[in-house]
């Protein structure tokens, strides 16, 4: 684990240095990414210029949901977001080169073209989350659940990124479908799930457990009853969902690598 982290750091920092070869572009990209990731919330804020609440939740409560899912996907994207380019690495033969190096393949794939601008998303989500958290009535259990929520949320998105990217071991050009689950999952959970039909909420709980990223723990932290009448135990079950997702992604990745067929003859 430590070795992998060290290798990740070394490869990542070399890429950061490489990106400094074009400083003007680097700074524009950093600012652009920060603004871009903040747009969703500006959108929500503008919607609230037209309504007082959304699905029974106030702007600050939605800010809390938004910040929590934002932190989850931001950390996942920071560390493993690059895995969605797997198909490209396969096409250009770069994966072959990586496989001849003594560092776990996943570490090399994820550290590839590491860019500081990915911190923009973390930064932006932190701002919204911190602002929204000042409206929460904090207790010790709630604070612990909040920590657990951010860790589990990151791990769920982390697993989603990896498992879905593995599809590219089989078909290299359909990487965009993964966005429907990763960034789509992020968008869904930016809103209170009361906005959506209950079938969708059940699917997000039991099929692709994205609701555990923020919805269930946030109900606990905000002191709310489950609007769909689902068991309150779910509100503490995010680590279980994260563990299951991690196990699935490890399995899928291993299968993918063994199935890898390289390019050419």
């Amino acid at each position: 684990m430590v070795d992998a982290a060290v290798a990740y750091y070394r490869i990542g920092s070399l890429w950061v240095r490489a990106s400094m070869a074009y400083p003007a572009s680097f700074w524009m990209m950093a600012v652009g990414s920060f603004l871009m990731t903040g747009l969703d919330f500006v959108g929500i804020w503008i919607l609230f210029g037209n309504v007082d609440d959304l699905g029974g939740f106030s702007l600050t409560e939605i800010g809390f949901l938004y910040g929590a899912t934002g932190l989850g996907i931001a950390f996942a994207d920071l560390f493993v977001g690059r895995v969605e380019r797997l198909g490209q690495m396969i096409r250009f033969g770069r994966l072959d080169t990586m496989m001849t190096k003594p560092v776990p393949l996943l570490v090399q794939v994820c550290a590839d073209e590491f860019a500081l601008r990915r911190f923009a998303r973390v930064f932006q989500a932190t701002i919204v989350f911190t602002w929204a958290a000042t409206y929460v009535d904090w207790t010790l259990p709630r604070a612990l659940v909040a920590v657990e929520m951010v860790v589990s949320g990151s791990l769920i998105f982390f697993s989603l990124f990896i498992s879905l990217a593995c599809i590219q071991f089989w078909t290299a050009d359909s990487s965009e479908a993964a966005n429907a689950f990763t960034y789509g999952g992020n968008t869904v959970t930016q809103f209170p799930l009361t906005v959506f039909p209950s079938e969708i909420v059940k699917a997000l709980t039991f099929v692709v457990p994205i609701a555990f990223v923020n919805w269930y723990p946030a109900l606990f932290i905000l002191g709310r009853e489950d609007p769909f009448g689902l068991p309150s135990a779910l509100q503490l079950a995010s680590p279980v969902a994260a563990a299951v997702m991690l196990a699935v992604s490890a399995l899928v990745w291993r299968t993918g690598v063994r199935h890898y067929r390289s390019t050419g003859s």
Partner: peptide, 18 residues
């Protein structure tokens, strides 16, 4: 990987911009 070296003729494992 520690015990072997591999060179693929038409691609490089070097950092392009560095």
């Amino acid at each position: 990987a520690r015990r072997i070296g591999v060179v693929f003729g038409q691609r490089t494992s070097l950092w392009w911009d560095l």
